[in-house]
Nucleic acid binder design. Structure first.
Lengths: 128, 128
DNA sequence: GCAATGGTTCGATGATGTGCGAACATCGAA
DNA sequence: TTCGATGTTCGCACATCATCGAACCATTGC
């Protein structure tokens, strides 16, 4: 070990991290995409990511009422649905919403979901 | 009240039928709507209803690889998500896709789902 | 009245999903 | 090297869901 195993840290070649498995939206079925979106927590994450800049938010920067384990699982689901991309940033993990790619695969879907104000789970009350 | 329990068959007043409980799209949460759509069978039913005229299809007119009980359950879910409307037609039950109403509540969602030409969700029978 | 058709309801069951706590691994910093 | 922060993985519990078979009910037609 010397001058080679020090500067490489993003693509692959290092065994340090399994490097998050990403699924491209093209390989995702509509049912899988809908199932990934059909969860309050994940929907919240997607919405927050949509409001933020790419790579701005780390996994732990979300205020969700669940433990780390569950949160990690949700991110894995979103990744597997081609909805987000993750990148290791030091000890943290940065996230990005794959808006363009996902939109190309499912035109209008993400837009329709995000267009929703926010009164989703809270109170589907006044709207008539 | 007298000559009334003979020709009326839709609203209520007769105990003959519980009359299907309908939920208006306005009272449906986005998560519930997505969950209702995130199923191959239900997605197929919605797609078929979208291709058909209102009240044209009865519950038993769909070629799905499941039993009556399960099918009935799926229709109940779709009804509860404000996606379809059902009307008793003699011994059968006719269905209608609530396109306009649902679209008003979730603009673009149904369109995005129906626009899908995924070779994956085509038919829940033979694929993959 | 009686049988057949079309759907619903009732358990039961297997599969899936969500959640937790604890243990583990990695990176950056002291 | 040791420590703290950040996530992931590993059981495990619990809830929900999709499905079936059988029983049941309503309507239609004989």
């Amino acid at each position: 070990m010397s001058a080679s195993a020090s500067a490489e840290s993003q693509t692959q070649g290092r065994a340090g991290r399994p490097a998050p498995e990403h699924t491209h939206p093209d390989e995702v079925s509509l049912t899988a995409a809908l199932a990934a979106l059909a969860d309050p927590v994940r929907l919240y994450l997607i919405r927050e990511l949509a409001r933020s800049a790419d790579w701005e938010r780390t996994c732990g920067s979300f205020d969700v009422p669940i433990g780390k384990a569950a949160l990690s699982h949700h991110f894995a689901v979103l990744r597997g649905a081609g909805l987000i991309e993750q990148r290791d940033a030091g000890t943290k993990r940065a996230n990005r919403l794959r808006r363009a790619e996902f939109d190309r695969r499912f035109p209008g879907l993400l837009g329709a979901v995000l267009r929703e104000g926010a009164p989703d789970e809270r109170a589907p009350s006044q709207s008539r």
